[in-house]
Simulated assay, not measured.
Amino acid sequence: MSEGPYRIGIDLGGTKTEGILLDPAGGVLFRKRRATPLAEGYEAVLASLAELVREAASACPCGSRYSVGIGIPGSVDAESGLVRNANSNCLIGHPLPADLERLLGRPVQVRNDADCFTLAECRQGAGQGYGLVFGVIMGTGCGGGICIDGVVREGPHRICGEWGHMSVDPHGAPCYCGSRGCVETKISGSGVERAFQARFGERLPMDRIVEGARAGEPRCEEVFETFLEDFGRSLGGIISILDPDAVVLGGGLSNIEELYGAGLDWVRRYVFHEALRTPILKNALGDSAGVFGAAWIGDQR
């Protein structure tokens, strides 16, 4: 068997929490999903996380070393140790890493879920074999992560890769972060839905907008084409800055096939190079990426 510790990963989501135990060779020994008790508040979420870690640890051979990594929809402030910018609002302002370490009596790594996604795809998914990978999550929100030679870059502010709050249109829609025209307001599902409502006075879910565009409905076609162009402008800018070896798309919107056709054409238009060679790849792990990435994050420093 390969050297190294067993790895426990927990993916904390808004509706479900998933736990996994990997053996040193990366094989799955334990996997479990449970509902996330957000409505019951922070203490309930904390207790649920600790219980899931203990269940996973009980599947380890007696006396084996193991690491613990937690992926959350937010980040931990490097100075205060408090959670910030979390979609799961009950986490905000709480010292989640310290509280978990107190309950479990061992070190715990807590990282942004986009970092976990990116690491998982680089270790086991579409990003394998590439040196510098930019991982993208496009869903209700929009996030990103950067993995270099198998290690996720976090940065001194722990926001490395967070392109969702890069302003690409100073006259655009207001974003909850306080800026206007952020990438998240342009190419997330919620951002496109709000753009449709602002333009036509009606709220349609993202999947209906996509279906309508494919069926030739003029309003949906207009908004969807803007979405594809904004995708190209945003990703083209990132590629011009990072010049990554590959980009891996994740999140629910990564299933929109037009991103890999017309969307890629818009990327080519906006990137600072006459012949784009960066592969834009669909994820290989689906919604499993987060929990696998959390397990690998656990023993990164």
Rank of each mutant, 00 (worst) to 15 (best):
I148N: 14
R203Q: 14
E184W: 04
V192S: 13
T17L: 02
A289Q: 08
C90Y: 06
D23E: 08
V168Y: 00
C177I: 01
G69D: 05
K32W: 01
E162H: 13
I8C: 12
C220M: 09
E258L: 12
G172A: 12
D115V: 04
G141T: 06
P37L: 09
S80K: 13
C182K: 14
S254R: 12
V210C: 12
G69L: 00
S254K: 11
I297V: 10
R199I: 01
G155V: 03
A195G: 10
A114Q: 08
A294K: 12
M206V: 12
A120Y: 05
R31W: 05
T278L: 05
G232E: 07
S288H: 09
D149K: 14
H273F: 05
A35T: 08
R65P: 00
R268M: 07
G236Q: 05
Q124S: 13
P95D: 11
V108W: 05
A56V: 03
E217F: 05
Y66R: 15
G250R: 06
L259R: 15
E221Q: 15
P107I: 11
F292L: 13
E121G: 09
G298D: 09
L21F: 04
Y260T: 07
I148A: 15
S179T: 01
R219F: 06
P156A: 15
K282R: 15
A198F: 02
G164P: 01
A275H: 11
I297K: 14
S58G: 10
L46D: 11
V248Q: 09
